[in-house]
Computed example of a mutant assay.
Amino acid sequence: MATFAAASFGAALSAAHEAAAGQHYPQATLYVVATPIGNLADITLRALHVLQMVDAVACEDTRHTQSLLRAYGIDRPNGQLLAVHQHNEAEAAQTVVARLAQGERIAYVSDAGTPGVSDPGARLVAAVRAAGQRVLPLPGASSVTTLIGAAGLVAGAGDDGSAFVFTGFLPTKAGERDAAVKTLAFETRAVVLLEAPHRIESVARALAVLGDRRITVGRELTKQFEEIVTVQASALPDWFAAGKDRTRGEFALVLHPMTVAVDDGAEGERVLRLLLEELPVKSAVRLAAEITGAPRNALYDTALRLRNSDEPND
């Protein structure tokens, strides 16, 4: 959530008008606007212009958004702020659709970052598009891409580590969370997670089972006390326990891609045997190839041989 420190954005508003006012802003359009994840100066000029121009601003929290707008010198009556959050999104979306049908321009912002990414907004966008009305995105800050860019993702030979999966928040219940982490153990690509301060230590303990897999932690990204560190998963609980401030703030985490070594055949067969106990042949072969780097065709032949050898004789 952005921190509304005292600052003057008068020059920024003027620059926003000069840079963006001449562009086309269609009516009957929902403008999906990214807002800062911590540092107010990360707002874009086009976002400032649109937030001044639209007929109304739909938002996750009207009080938070009013404070954000006023920090930029934008003063809107409370009646021009529409609450659209996870508890009323489906119903509130119909209000937005009705206003768009009257030709209004409406911006949507979440509390921080890009709407619809682990924040409300996706259902609103879906409803607007289903009604045949236009959605126009204004890109900007995102904790996901911010941390990915600072993590230095490097995988095995021939792989630049650039592929990643966005998982967001892990389940809150311990059993479901542990099961999700076991699934991550077989994911060869980087994985981006988000977490709140009151759950981060529990998540760290759950991730510790991933052993020497590296994890980059981003805490309070773009804010004054921003901290970015990379540790092995097994050391994650101790890292958080080493300082009381380390569990404060909002968190993004990147599970680094699995380092894939070239397999000599024996390891591929060992992993394949384990997977075949739980999975169909095709799924077991695919995962074994990703985990060990062994050729998929060779693993498939091995899987058929193992399955045939397990069949009872007549």
Rank of each mutant, 00 (worst) to 15 (best):
A5E: 15
S8M: 12
S8K: 13
F9K: 09
G10K: 06
L13S: 09
S14N: 13
A16I: 00
A19S: 13
A20D: 02
A21E: 05
H24E: 15
H24P: 14
Y25W: 06
A28K: 00
T29R: 05
Y31L: 03
V32I: 12
T35P: 07
G38A: 06
G38P: 02
A41D: 14
L45I: 03
L45N: 06
V50L: 08
Q52H: 10
M53Y: 04
D55K: 03
D55L: 07
A56G: 05
A58G: 05
T62G: 09
R63F: 11
R63K: 12
H64E: 14
S67G: 14
L69S: 02
A71K: 12
A71Y: 11
G73E: 09
D75E: 13
P77E: 09
Q80C: 14
V84T: 14
V84C: 13
H85R: 11
Q86G: 11
Q86V: 14
Q86D: 14
H87A: 11
E89N: 11
E89K: 09
A93Q: 06
V96H: 00
V97N: 04
A98W: 09
R99K: 09
L100K: 00
Q102K: 10
G103S: 06
G103Q: 00
R105P: 03
I106S: 03
D111I: 10
V117L: 11
S118Q: 06
S118G: 05
A122S: 15
A122N: 13
A122W: 13
R123V: 14
R123D: 14
A127I: 08
A130P: 09
G132N: 10
L136Q: 12
P137K: 02
T146D: 13
G152M: 12
L153R: 03
V154L: 15
V154E: 15
G158P: 08
G158E: 07
D159M: 06
G161F: 08
A163D: 15
F164K: 02
V165Q: 12
V165D: 09
F169H: 03
P171D: 11
A174Q: 13
A179Q: 13
V181A: 07
T183S: 14
L184A: 05
A185T: 04
T188D: 15
T188A: 15
L194S: 03
L194Y: 06
E195M: 01
E195R: 01
A196R: 00
H198K: 01
H198M: 02
A204G: 06
A206H: 00
L207N: 00
R213T: 06
R214T: 10
G218P: 04
R219G: 01
E220C: 00
L221T: 02
T222A: 04
E226Y: 04
V229P: 01
T230A: 07
T230W: 09
A235F: 03
L236Y: 01
P237C: 00
A242P: 07
K244D: 15
R246S: 03
R246T: 01
T247S: 08
R248S: 04
F251N: 00
A252G: 04
L255Q: 03
H256N: 06
M258F: 11
V262E: 15
E267A: 14
E267M: 14
G268Q: 05
L274V: 12
L279V: 10
L279W: 11
A284L: 06
R286G: 07
L287R: 11
A289F: 10
A289G: 15
I291E: 13
G293F: 10
L299K: 01
D301T: 11
L304F: 07
L304S: 05
R305A: 15
R307Q: 11
R307W: 07
D310R: 13
E311N: 08
N313D: 12
D314Q: 10
